[in-house]
């Protein structure tokens, strides 16, 4: 039996009928058509499905949609600024080559966005720690880490709030 569920996704509120056990990732992808969030393992081990919950990175495959009612969910589709402007993190990933097949990219960008929100000028160790839950098989992480450094540069010192949510 489906139940009513009100989700705040990317700044807008939607009420849907979902199965009580429906995972957040399925509601995002199937009910809301937000397929930018990827499923790589379904066990919370690869980080491809990372979204932000009240600004903090979580695995959408491990959450039941009903659990996140009333909390702000941000997906990769929610990062674009006004007029389709790329966020600093998105811009840096494009320019610095932190992308190969792109399957891990949305999750990586969400984790990097959360990091720079909290720590605008992270050390390399902080960047690596923030990305430890996001597996990538193509890049060897080097250009991803470089992209996060470049995003921090774009944001500039002491302006952590500029990265769009």
């Amino acid at each position: 039996m489906n139940v009513e569920c009100t989700l705040e996704v990317n700044g807008s509120s939607t009420t849907l009928q979902v199965a009580p056990s429906a995972r957040l990732i399925d509601v995002l992808r199937e009910d809301l058509g937000l397929t930018g969030t990827k499923e790589g393992c379904g066990n919370g081990e690869c980080g491809s499905c990372t979204v932000l919950l009240d600004g903090r990175p979580v695995n959408a495959c491990l959450l039941v949609a009903l659990e996140v009612e009333g909390r702000a969910v941000t997906t990769i589709e929610g990062l674009l600024g006004p007029g389709g402007k790329l966020s600093h993190v998105q811009q840096a990933f494009v320019e610095t080559g932190g992308i190969q097949c792109g399957f891990c990219t949305p999750g990586m960008i969400m984790s990097a966005t959360a990091l720079l929100e909290a720590t605008p000028a992270p050390s390399d160790a902080e960047i690596r720690d923030a990305l430890v839950g996001n597996l990538c098989r193509c890049t060897g992480y080097a250009q991803i880490i470089e992209s996060v450094r470049a995003a921090a540069e774009l944001i500039g010192p002491g302006s952590g709030g500029e990265t769009p949510r």
Partner: peptide
């Protein structure tokens, strides 16, 4: 930058699934 990079950071690339 590769032409396919933008769709990937937007989450727009339509993979098989």
């Amino acid at each position: 930058p590769r032409p396919d990079a933008w769709a990937k950071v937007f989450g727009d690339t339509a993979y098989a699934h």
